[in-house]
Amino acid sequence: MSNSTTHSTGPTDQQAVTPEAAVAAPVTGGPSGLRRILRMLVADKLALLSALFLVIVILCAILGPLFLAEMASDTNLRARNAPPFELERGFAYILGGDALGRPLLARIVMAARNTMLIAAGAVAGSMLIGSTLGLIAGYAGRWTGEVIMRLADVIMSFPSLLLAVIVLYMLAPSIGNLVLVLAITRIPIYLRTTRAEVLEVRKRMFVQAATVMGASRRRIIFRHILPVILPTLLTIATLDFAFVMLAESALSFLGIGIQAPEITWGLMVSQGRAYLTNAWWLAFWPGLAIILTTMSLNLLSSWMRVALNPTQRWRLEIGGKKND
């Protein structure tokens, strides 16, 4: 009921109509690209904070190893399991020290690079391959689609960690191989989601309208179908980010993932597990880093879902007022 009234047009067809139109029109005519995105980001405070946090994480990943490599690997037996929030050993020990007396803050910053490399690599890889195959499976003929789907079934029928264990046992455990294995095991999720959405979207009228205009398959897929399903894929990807980080730590824990002295947040959590009763901070801080990163990604992706959708965008453009 409220729908029919807010979108009502009244009897005259000529006047600009919905309240959204009135609000959004001056903005769409206004500033271009980047400034507009920034303005929409500022409108959503949570998304803004998330974006800032992610920028910090990325800076850590890029710059951290340049400055902190030595500090993060120097053992200091007097600072073994040093408790957090004590400044007498220097600022590096503000989060405490690990079992070998290495400062946790420096190690977390150091570990950001490997963690991000593996998680981002695996998620981006599986999303790219999975959604491409999904688009093909959804849009191409029945045969191609069937073959691709059965392929996905094969991957899914293996427990993903078991598959990783087997592959990494045979290959040398390196970052590259880890990314490869994690990417492969996550492909079916994107593949199935994409295919299901494509099957629905391709029946929509505007896709048929494009066909009637003579649009090529490529144009229909990338211009008309992909933008509709992209928000779903991005949401899955952000959720998957956390899963991949934890899977990586599980593999590292089994000794077939990242090898010491290389570190990742997941590895730090599993190393700290043994000390949970007397030195909780060993596992807590890297765990917090994982949680904050995935949460930020999640908030940012839900912001992006609104910002990418022209019919929803006004919610951000009118200044972040919540709709009931």
Binding site: T9, D13, T18, A21, A24, P310, T311
Partner: peptide, 14 residues
């Protein structure tokens, strides 16, 4: 000037 707008900003007839 309607060219810059998106379909949802119009009525059915438009």
């Amino acid at each position: 000037e309607h060219a810059k707008r998106y379909p949802h900003q119009f009525s059915g007839g438009q």
